[in-house]
């Protein structure tokens, strides 16, 4: 359960003020599938970052699963991010020197799990994402679709309640993009809240709820 109340995020560029989020209020229930669309610079990524606790709003209140998370310390926010939130980015953000399996393992290492337990879970996820034969490949040796699959595997290995995807298909061709969307939707079907930022009308239309943004404000919200 995500509840944003009067969230404002202001950036300062020299003496210019950019209201990336302007008094945004939004409720997203657990298990929803939401798309966020809008022109470039409308505040979509900023909204996603605030929801994912990567960015702190300048004002407003954010409740996640019933508790106020805006007031949490940096360390506590990191723990919430690790356990409740999965990020998927347009440019994958894999660590280039680590193999696919090692990239997927990172959240488990941060969580402090034992190596044996980590191996079990990484192997299971590699299998589920059809990446077993790519386990020891580095990102540079993987195709775009494979990279995004690794990134999604990494984002979901700790079973987050919400999966936040910022233009997850932006760097992929249409067919591969559709495959990646299908993967995300499968995760949604197993109960994860899925929030997707996209420029693609067709992909956006697949969500069950459509949020439209412009100039840091929500200008449309339909199911």
């Amino acid at each position: 359960m995500i509840r944003l109340t009067s969230i404002t995020r202001v950036f300062h560029m020299g003496d210019q003020e950019v209201r990336a989020l302007n008094d945004v209020s939004l409720d997203i229930a657990s298990g929803e599938y939401v798309s966020i669309m809008g022109p470039s610079g409308s505040g979509k990524s900023t909204l996603l970052n605030v929801i994912g606790l990567l960015d702190r709003p300048d004002s407003g209140r954010y409740e996640l699963d019933g508790s106020d998370v805006t007031a949490l310390s940096e360390t506590e926010q990191a723990r919430v991010r690790r356990e409740k939130i999965g990020f998927v980015f347009q440019s994958f953000h894999l660590v280039p020197r680590l193999t696919a399996a090692q990239n997927i393992e990172l959240p488990l290492i941060l969580e402090g799990l034992a190596p044996a337990e980590r191996k079990l879970r990484v192997d299971a996820v590699l299998d589920a994402f059809d990446l077993t034969d790519r386990a020891t490949h580095r990102p540079a040796e993987l195709s775009g679709g494979q990279r995004q699959r690794v990134a999604i595997a990494r984002a979901t290995i700790l079973r987050p309640t919400a999966l936040l995807a910022d233009e997850p298909t932006g760097n992929l061709d249409h067919r591969i993009g559709a495959e990646v969307m299908a993967l995300l939707e499968a995760l949604h079907h197993s109960g994860t809240t899925l929030i997707v930022v996209t420029h693609d009308r067709e992909l956006g239309a697949r969500a069950h709820r459509h949020i439209a943004m412009r100039d840091g404000e929500i200008v449309g919200d339909e199911k």
Binding site: E74, A78, R81, F87, H93, V95, L106, L110
Partner: peptide, 16 residues
């Protein structure tokens, strides 16, 4: 920098 950002995004606290 990008790697550090990623680690933070997947839940690494500043101390780590």
């Amino acid at each position: 920098t990008a790697e550090i950002g990623l680690l933070k995004a997947i839940g690494a606290p500043a101390a780590d």
